[in-house]
Amino acid sequence: MNDLARIDVHQHLIPPEFREALGRHGMAGWAPFEWSEAGALAMMDDFGIATGLLSLSTPGPHLGDDLEARELTRRINERIAGMVQRRPDRFGMFASVPLPDIEGSLEAIAYAYDQLSTDGVVLLANTRGTYLGDPKFEPVMAELGRRSAIVSIHPAHLEGRPVPGLHPSLADFLLDTTRSAINLVLQGVTRRYPNIRFILSHAGGFLPYAAHRIATLANVVDPAVDRVAMLEDLSSFYFDTALSGSPTALPSLGAFVRPGHVLFGSDSPYASGKTIGYFTNNLDRFAGLDEAAHTAINRANAEILFPRLALRRHEIERSQS
């Protein structure tokens, strides 16, 4: 795809204030890549991305201290909002929140929506072992439901000792996202707050492939769980294609998710240009999708979720005609 047509719902930034905070906490290795606004735009031009919705990746802005996390969250969200204000055609925003600080998270959500006009919110699948769906996070979910929020769920590191030689990105991140999605459904969050649109990173981890196993065994473990209803709830999520445009992942997505619920994602800059190219080329060449389906994944589905991006495209097209 040579023209700037895609909307990338899974694109990160590594701002200097985040890098500095990680360094202070001895966590510099969590942000190993260089990032700049110019570099992001160049990557987007290379892969036909019109707009990238920026978010902070794991470990998020809370590195141990509530007050520090609140300040870091505000600075990062203001940085992204400034980029969106300068280039609303090229950038969008998923605001960070400083979980597990509930009060700070509610303040960050209010500020992001009321002052920064955020497009959505990014939440980590787990925060120090507590997963989305846990009753501790209910006030945050209630507020996101009240605002009909679009929430990008990004994996975090699993609690416990890692497997030597097995980087978390190989399997742990996929399990983390899957755990979070299952817990949100089992705890009834998706039913209580149907106005929240959740986007699962990396094609939902293992979820599309294993959904029928998950729902069937959930009923075995607890007969009160309705298998059919659980499958319906699991399919209500949105799924991005970051690192997942493959001949094995795409058929699982197509067989499981609802129409209109697959969105393009790059995972830049944590994914290199070579890696993005591999998965994007596979997506573009996948024979299981017709032209309309490719257009839907690349742009149209996201324009329904983010109407301002569709409006902006129409404005640009009118100015060029």
Rank of each mutant, 00 (worst) to 15 (best):
G145E: 07
E34V: 03
D267P: 10
S236T: 09
A218W: 09
N282C: 09
S246K: 08
F18Q: 01
Q85P: 00
F137K: 09
F91K: 03
A296P: 07
N301S: 14
D176H: 06
G277Q: 12
H157W: 06
T73E: 01
I196T: 06
A181R: 12
A271K: 00
S55M: 11
S268R: 09
N219C: 11
L166M: 14
G29R: 00
L106W: 04
Y193E: 05
Y131D: 11
V257T: 12
N282G: 15
L283A: 04
P307Q: 10
Q187C: 05
L184E: 09
L186D: 04
D172G: 07
A69H: 03
R147N: 10
A5F: 13
G48F: 08
P61K: 00
I7P: 03
G92M: 04
H157Y: 05
R86S: 12
R318V: 15
I316Y: 06
P251A: 13
D65K: 13
A38H: 08
D46K: 15
T275A: 14
I316K: 10
T280C: 04
L250H: 05
A203N: 06
I196P: 01
M230E: 08
S235Y: 06
A242F: 10
P164E: 13
K274V: 12
L217M: 14
A81V: 02
M230D: 11
G48P: 07
T127L: 01
K136V: 15
E17S: 08
G64M: 11
R308H: 08
R318T: 13
M44A: 14
F206S: 13
R86M: 07
G245F: 11
A42Q: 12
R299Y: 12
L63Y: 02
D134M: 04
S272G: 05
A21N: 00
S266G: 03
T280I: 01
N298T: 00
N219H: 15
E317P: 02
F306L: 10
